[in-house]
Design a protein around this nucleic acid. Structure first.
Lengths: 144, 144
DNA sequence: TCATTTGTTTTGACTGAGTCAAAAGAACCG
DNA sequence: CGGTTCTTTTGACTCAGTCAAAACAAATGA
């Protein structure tokens, strides 16, 4: 159980130029325990706290937090967008092709892997997404 | 202008275990010239040839072709699925963050880059998607 | 502390992309 | 050429997300 206080969340929000509101604090708190959650899951997790919150509000909060860089949005092919709070360390993700589970994967080689394509077709490259696809330990066990 | 014949497309389809039908040949032909096209664009390109074809048929054809490996499906975050016929060489893609243009990028280093994550969290890794994000030459020129 | 301004959240309608199922039709096999 | 199997068509439907306007709350400064 991590114990970031409401005051700390509020400070983080204000430092990012956002107003500190209950829905935003609540979403940040949910993201401490729910890694790689989609908007619907975050909404469900927030609801006990804030029963009057709507899914659309969660979308709005997530868009605001993503804009200022407090959360990161990932969109694996075939699933809805997922959000995570671990940011700034350029890590990647591995997705289970059977159950859809997502885990973090540290950088492949060195600090900024795969950021040096051989031919860039004239593009100025800014970032790279890397998504690994495989089978998670649970699904491996289930099929054995 | 590439000149794959209908007979050649038919053979390729049958070799893959599919029946050789007009919509499938037509989609394959469209993919020769339209790299990285989405289902709607393919549908439009196919329509002059086959006026009675529906978008749903195109979805069906693309799903069948993807299943047997004749085309590859990519899903950059924020755009609909794109399809391409260049397969089997493990290349990646660079997407323009401004206009959405997609170009191929050859493997970063060696033949199968980024396929060796440092910690796999117990997953058995099968493939890796790499998507680069940047600004294409046209958009660079437009903003200068 | 209160009023004002500005930024958020709520509400509800709407869109885009894609899936699903059943019926009609076309390819392949002998 | 006939029969079986695979495809395509048609149409309804779902899911994820966006958009706009009105109601509301947080920060600012008097």
């Amino acid at each position: 159980m991590q114990t970031t206080t409401d005051a700390e969340f509020s400070t983080a929000l204000r430092d990012a130029g956002l107003k500190a509101t209950a829905p935003r604090r609540s979403v940040l708190r949910v993201l401490e325990t729910h890694q790689h959650a989609d908007a619907a899951a975050i909404f469900e997790a927030v609801r006990p706290d804030l029963p009057d919150t709507s899914l659309q509000a969660v979308y709005g909060v997530l868009a605001a937090l993503t804009d200022v860089g407090l959360v990161r949005r990932i969109e694996p092919a075939g699933s809805p967008a997922l959000y995570e709070r671990r940011i700034g360390d350029n890590h990647h993700h591995v997705v289970c092709t059977q159950c859809g589970a997502v885990h973090d994967v540290d950088c492949v080689i060195g600090e900024a892997p795969c950021l040096t394509p051989s031919n860039t077709a004239g593009f100025s490259i800014e970032t790279a997404d890397v998504t690994f696809w495989g089978v998670c330990p649970d699904c491996q066990a289930a099929s054995a």
